[in-house]
Design a protein around this nucleic acid. Structure first.
Lengths: 177, 177
DNA sequence: TCTCGTTGTCTATCAGCGTTAGACAACGGA
DNA sequence: TCCGTTGTCTAACGCTGATAGACAACGAGA
């Protein structure tokens, strides 16, 4: 009356999350199907569901949460001033576009702006709030919105590709004068 | 040797586009399937494909292009100053969230920022550029990014729900001082 | 009025998706 | 060695976007 030993679910979740992130980053989220992912990992589909009860959505959410941690790390790693962190933010969005997509554009099961907000997400926002004038929360929200808008519109090809640097300087100027 | 008369494809496209927009706005884009749409219109699925050769993507793109026209109309309808147009922009995004999604968030087959940019899209951008300082294009891009960021982050529940007005005023202040 | 060629529309189907039910197999204690 | 537990596998369900091929409607010519 003793069961088969349980697999290390945390380790498995980590492997699956990393593979999903890598696959999304190289071929796009639309190719990250449960079948493809299982094949890539040498598993069968039901194993994925035993690691992520919430199915594909939970998987995308896991990549997003890891992404918020990575973004917070990237912001905290640079100088504690606005231009450095603005640049770090846009660099992150440009170099990990699919992770950024999971964090902000794809349908999400995560909770925001209430008590359930994941801590990594709060950390990332705090890293911005720390460097805006008077650490004002409203200003931080506007700064974040500007960065997010620049990142997504740029990524979507909606802005003149060659003018990224000029936009960053202009945005920084507006936020500090 | 004379064929059956061709149906009015433009009219049909218009009906389909309107139905798709209404259905998306009331139940979300994930429920806008070709089957559901055909049933809603009393058609069969292949008829949709004869109207939109590009399939579902072309349909979403059509809703998006109409959306850019509607956005340009909304911006041009208000006072020719920045705060009025900022407010009109955010109102549009708030009241037609699924259309806005088709315009900016969903995968798109449309071309931007090059010669192929659809005219309605240029009109909408021009309506913003017209009211920023010195009609500067870089400033207009940053203003647009801020509005877009506010619209999407607000919609996604990433910002404090009660502070919309404060953010709008702060953003306006930053763009004018 | 009847026939015929053209062409739009229909039924039926394909391959793929996320997800899950139920059969099977591996394992550790008795 | 056996047994009960439990993880994993095969196989399937219902759905999706898309399309092939049979069918039917139509108007010009006879």
């Amino acid at each position: 009356m003793s069961p088969r030993p349980a697999p290390d679910l945390d380790l498995r979740r980590e492997q699956i999350t990393r593979t999903a992130r890598d696959l999304a980053e190289s071929e796009g989220w639309e190719t990250v199907t449960m079948r493809r992912l299982a094949a890539e990992l040498g598993m069968t589909q039901p194993v994925l569901y035993s690691a992520f009860t919430g199915g594909r959505q939970a998987l995308v959410d896991a990549v997003a949460v890891d992404g918020f941690t990575a973004l917070a790390d990237a912001l905290e790693a640079v100088d504690r001033d606005l231009p450095a962190r603005m640049r770090a933010y846009l660099d992150f969005a440009m170099h990990r576009p699919r992770v950024y997509e999971a964090m902000f554009s794809l349908p999400s099961g995560l909770r925001f702006a209430d008590g359930e907000t994941p801590p990594p997400l709060r950390r990332a926002f705090a890293a911005i709030q720390d460097v805006v004038e008077r650490r004002d929360e409203t200003t931080a929200e506007v700064a974040w919105a500007t960065l997010h808008g620049l990142a997504t519109l740029e990524r979507g090809g909606r802005l003149r590709p060659s003018q990224g640097e000029a936009r960053l300087e202009r945005a920084h100027g507006l936020l500090t004068t």
